[in-house]
Design a protein around this nucleic acid. Sequence first.
RNA 1: GCGGGCGUGGUGAAAUUGGUAGACACGCUAGACUUAGGAUCUAGUGCUGCGAGGCUUGGGGGUUCGAGUCCCUCCGCCCGCACCA
Length: 839
Amino acid sequence: MFHSWYSRKENKAKPISELISIFETEGNVNHTCPGDENLQFDAAAWKAYSEKEKRDCLMQYRIAYQGYAQVWWCEALGTVLANDEVVNGVSERGGHPVERKNMRQWFLRITEFAERLIDSLDKLEWSDAMKEMQKNWIGKSVGAEVRFSLSPSLSEGEGEVTVFTTRPDTIFGVDFMVLAPEHELVDGITTAEQQNAVEEYRTYVKTRSERERMSEVKQVTGCFTGAYAIHPFTEKQVPVWISEYVLAGYGTGAIMGVPSGDERDHAFAKHFNIPITNIFGEKYNGEEAYSAKTSTIENSGFLSGMNIPDATEAAINALVKAGLGKRKVNYKLRDAGFSRQRYWGEPFPIIYIDGVPYGTDEGLSPSLSKGEGGISQLPVELPYVESYKPGPEGQGPLANITDWVNTDAGQRETNTMPGYAGSSWYFLRYMDPGNNTEFASRKATDYWNQVDLYIGGTEHAVGHLLYSRMWTKALYDLGHIGFDEPFKKLLNQGMIQGSSRFVYIFDYQLKEEKAELKLKGPLLLSLGLVKEALNNVEANMKLARKLADDYFSNSLFDELFSGWNFRPLRVDVSFVDGLELDIEAFKKWRPEYADAEFILEDGKYICGAEVEKMSKSKYNVVNPDDIVAQYGADTFRMYEMFLGPIDVSKPWDTKGIEGVHRFLKKFWRLYADETKGWVVTDEKATDAELRILHKTIKKISEDIERFSFNTSVSQFMICVNELSTLGCHKREILEPLAVVICPFAPHIAEELWQKLGNSGSVVAASFPAFEDRFVTENSKMYPVAINGKTRTEMEFALDADQASIEAAVLADENIIKWLEGKAPKKFIFVKGKMINVVV
RNA sequence: GCGGGCGUGGUGAAAUUGGUAGACACGCUAGACUUAGGAUCUAGUGCUGCGAGGCUUGGGGGUUCGAGUCCCUCCGCCCGCACCA
């Protein structure tokens, strides 16, 4: 990726060497620079560049490139934190203050692939929901880029603000401009008198996460810069503000505020008393923005009277003609941040020489190019470290290993790659894991081709699954593999969650010196008491009063506590039977509660429960090995299938596994009796037995196709119940049945297969063919409804015609009773389904 | 806030194309066999009502001969939101 660039002309990734050749002959006239759209040079200029200038320029084209991104910086911990390590604006560990800090980072230019990532979704067998999520994440929008010049007389700096808008038709409704607080122009345009206010506001914004900035739309914040921009058509001067609702990474990091047509702009204008220009005539009521797209545009110069699509076209054409803007496609998708300041992650094969990054495979020095890792010293391996402490100035731990960082060619990159680096291509490596000259041979990837079926969770919808797709396209473009989509079919499986258990500690603050506690240990309350107290102020007071009376030396309640609450504490699920706590086991596990007092309800301590991800830290882990030891792998496997549809998440609950276990025992008893031993006979099967077998073959075949394993298990249960009732022990039925059940209960199937006298494994046996003739019926019990409510059942031949059925139904005494003498208005007969009489 | 998903008995669920709601299990109740039962078998089990019957798929409304399924609307829950991986 470092050695490649994206050709917008050919719409594919290409080697960077080809770009260098192009620059040498024609400069970049035919290849707009994705990193800097205004960069232009010819061949002569290119040749005159220094080595460093050339490399800097190429960096703006590379698919793996360096840029700047904001990270959470925690001064106290001396490290960069992940989003989920920042809680309520402070570090999760230690509660230290954090702020957004700009840092140099590696990126992958996934935005260049945006269009293809949308287009080729069509050829994937993924759920519509999944495709929808990816489309929305990529967020293609068509609109215009518009330049507003700043008013030199009123602004500190001169120049222009470029905005992206999906509604160029509303350009006459612009009443203000808003820049992201991080926007590079802000420093230059802020007037002296607004300097302090702007600084203060930016300090506030630094503490805000992007999520908060997007979510909390009701609370309007912002700050005027003192600068004004000039409307391109009316020459009206509009104030330039900064506000957190404009994000630096979206579009150009600046918007034109059209309060009459956009809700957030409207709220902003109202909040800061900015006069609102109405461009929708009567459709805009002054109270809320008119954001529907069905009005005509009014009060808008040459756009007045046009509908929205026409006005959009006209506005863009006028902007282009005036040289003030252009048509533009924008994507919400951002280039993927590819640096982490962590130890665990693939190290970059990058060396800095005089601050300029080179690939370790670029022949930098003899020792590097012939080092241990092969000719190009790939792969670069993580060095051993004594400590995982962060490096200086927010660098990763690798920065501390100076021996490793400093090579005779230059300094190594100390960032590492993120988790999705490996997850984007591991499936390719699996195709050729022993290869030590390339990631996978073309022969191997051509043979194995795409992943046929990928089972994964929706949590990967817009991360891993999008990055893998981009990665695959890049490798395809560069000729390393022969397919451009990694996962042909995708199925989302649900998660088996944990069910956590909680006890509740009475947590109180005593008023000073007022009381002595009679307790030796903490006070734990059963769930029912806590629930009642939390639901009801009176109950809460009553409970506290009672606790004061029972457990404290001073029962003058009003003088006892300054406050109290019920603090939940996780307990290991193995000490809880259902919801009832084994108090002794708990005390043993947590010695600090050995002297605790437990307040019970009905003689039991009832725990609280919550469904969460299964995790050691939540003490809610159930180990599958224990289940397998108790019930066997077949029972475990079938029970997991039986729990419900494959794509639904649910908490693990061992209750119910008995049913599946009983089923397998009953299934076994068709073949072997506890006392009599093997009971399989060679008798001829009856029609009824064959019907059961073939209904089962049909159902299982269909269910497997649609991954409906829970209903398959049900069908096996129905089959075994019916065969048991018939007392069937016939080889003609039971031998094929063992083959059908094999994918669901392979161990028992294999054993029965052997006992039936077969050589070879049951997995090699061919799946029994379904034969229609065994299951066809010639009559059907029809539900007969009056006005849609089923009142009785009547049996008719399947080939009976409507007239004879109608006559029979209307003559039926049950039906006559329900008709109550009224004449039927309509008779509905759906062959093979039902009958409905409308009166 | 935005995007996606889900909501059916005491519990897990089924109903595949708009056609008998609750299949199959768990649990529970009663019984049989048994020295014993955490084995096995039988019957019952959505709610309500003595009964005929009535009610019932998160709430409300609509389309239809017929709605768990389609449409509108409201409520609730779960997942993702770019440095958890």
